[in-house]
Every structure is written in C-alpha cells, then in structure tokens.
Simulated scan of single mutants.
Amino acid sequence: MQSPSLRQLDIFAQMVAAGSVARCADMLGVTADDIARDIGSLEMRLGYRLFEDMSGTVRLTPAGRKTAQAMTLLSQDAPEDWDETAAPDAMPAQAVPLSAAPARQTIMLAAPAPIFGHFQDALSAFEAANEDIAITLDLQVQSVADAADALRAGRADIAYFYALEEPAGFASRYGWSEPLSLYVGDAHPLAQADSVSRDDLATTPMLALERHNPMRHIVEDALARGRVQLGPPVLESDDMFAVMTALRAGKGIFAAFGALARDLGRMDGIGRLRLDAQLPAIEVRQALGPRAAETPAVEALAEFLFL
C-alpha cells in the first residue's frame, strides 16, 4: 500500500504490536498525541477507522484487522495482554484470508485501500454467505498499469483501479465516479468567492501529497485534463494533519477525491471552492483476470460488488 506515508504504516504496525497508545509512544520515544495524530491521519487517508477506541487497550475494528492482515504488518511479538479478538495472527504476504474459517477456494482482490473501505461490508457479507470461499486483499493497486500487472501475474482475480476514462486495450467496466474537488481554509482569499476561475487558480499556491505518492499523479492527471494549473506547491506531505493545518492557515489549495474529500468537507475551517467549471471526475473501474470465466465464484463476487 503506497498512498499513506511509511511512517504512518510503521506506527500502525507498532500500535498493533504494542496494544496501547501509551505503550506505543514509549516504544517509539514520542508523545501519545503524536501517535494519535499519525493514526488519525492514516485513517483519513484510508477512509475508515482502524481502531475502535484509542484509550486504554486499543482494539482493531473489523476493517482494521483486515487491513493489518493485508499489509502483513502484524508481529509475532504482540504483548501477552493483547486481546486476541483485536489482533489477528501474523500471516504470509499475498495470502491473507479475511476470515479464519477453512476455505476450499481463495479469491484474490486487488484495490486501493479507500476502495476497500467502500465495499468492506459487501465482502464480509459475501464470505458469510459462502463459507467455502476466502477473500484475500492486495491494497497496492492504484492505476490501470498496476491492475493489469496484478491480473496478468495471477496476483489478483478481481482488480479495482482509478482512471479518467476507459483504458484502451484493457477490458474493464465502470463502477462509479468520485468527483475531484479543491479545498481551502476559511482564511484563504478565495474561500468566500462566489465563482473561482482557472486564472485565479494559476496564481494560488498548492498543497500536495508527496511526489512518490501515486494518488498525487492521479490528481495531477485529472487537473491537467480539466486545464487547471495551480501555483507551485508550498507543502508536499502525506501527513493529513499537516495538510489540514496549512489549509486552515490559508496557505494554499488542496485537491482531493473519494473518502479523503468527504472527510475534508466535514472539517471545521475548511471548505470546497466554488469553481466556474466542473473538474473531471475520477473513475473507479473493475477488471477481471483472464481465467475469471472459468471460476464461477470470481464472477459471482465481481457481480455482487456491483449490487
């Protein structure tokens, strides 16, 4: 999984191993507030909660357990007082079932982590109704190139990916669209404007994810297609709390879509710009492996996720 920062992923792993915010903070030599900040930032990026409660002995949510399994971040050195219902056993990479029940057939699903958050309930329902099937996750796929590689190499039976249109030469189907929006803090000069033009945007500094983050490239491609050019970045960070702080201080514009955009839209002191032209939406598309037609369960899950 590449979208969150490595530091956030490491802290998530340390939290699972430590079992509490205080113990994790002591292990890493930082404050409990620092731990809570990084976990909160990671949850914003993923679009779902990882822990039920950050006080006392922490418990993973069902989505948190599945995410930890899929990222293979769990350690064999979990503390003795760690709740077994909160921390799953460590499992090998590329083969981590979402349920502990024995399975006669495994379906490999590749998708960006925020998309997994979109249909995690559907996956659980499918497994509950099909006890002979286990679903494993690969959360590293982002683009059509990622999806094509995963399906061709047999690392996935079903792949979801982001695109701006139907890719040429690669069979996929449209799932849904996630609007791209631009966000500023209430202190920004454009915050109260009734209409913001491309000329206004070109002279306004931007806040961006780090350059290695694939989500940044997806956003930049969408902006380019919409003929929108923002000013130079004044902040490049995967730390969403740093981005939110800069937004509220009026330092620039941040482009987002999906779960991250929904979360930003609910934040006090942050609002969506009212543009004079609509930005291109980000498509979420589904593709199946070359042998899907030979596997009824794969086609059944692919259809079920569209219900």
Rank of each mutant, 00 (worst) to 15 (best):
V30W: 06
I35E: 05
D38Y: 07
G40K: 05
G40T: 04
R45Y: 04
R45S: 03
L46V: 13
L46P: 00
F51N: 00
D53S: 08
S55Q: 12
S55G: 05
V58D: 10
L60C: 13
A63L: 13
A63C: 11
R65C: 02
K66F: 00
T67H: 02
A70N: 01
T72N: 00
L73H: 00
L73D: 02
L73S: 03
L74T: 06
S75K: 11
P79M: 06
W82F: 09
W82H: 08
D83P: 10
T85W: 03
A87R: 13
A87V: 15
D89S: 15
A90L: 08
R104W: 10
L109W: 04
A111T: 14
A113N: 06
A113D: 07
I115Q: 04
F119Y: 09
Q120A: 06
Q120E: 10
D121G: 01
A122E: 15
L123G: 10
F126Y: 15
A129V: 08
E131L: 13
A134K: 11
A134N: 15
T136H: 12
V141S: 06
V141G: 00
S143P: 08
S143E: 09
A145F: 00
A145H: 09
A148E: 13
R152C: 00
A153T: 11
A153E: 11
G154T: 12
G154W: 04
R155E: 05
A156M: 10
A163T: 10
A168V: 02
G169V: 01
A171R: 14
S172Q: 08
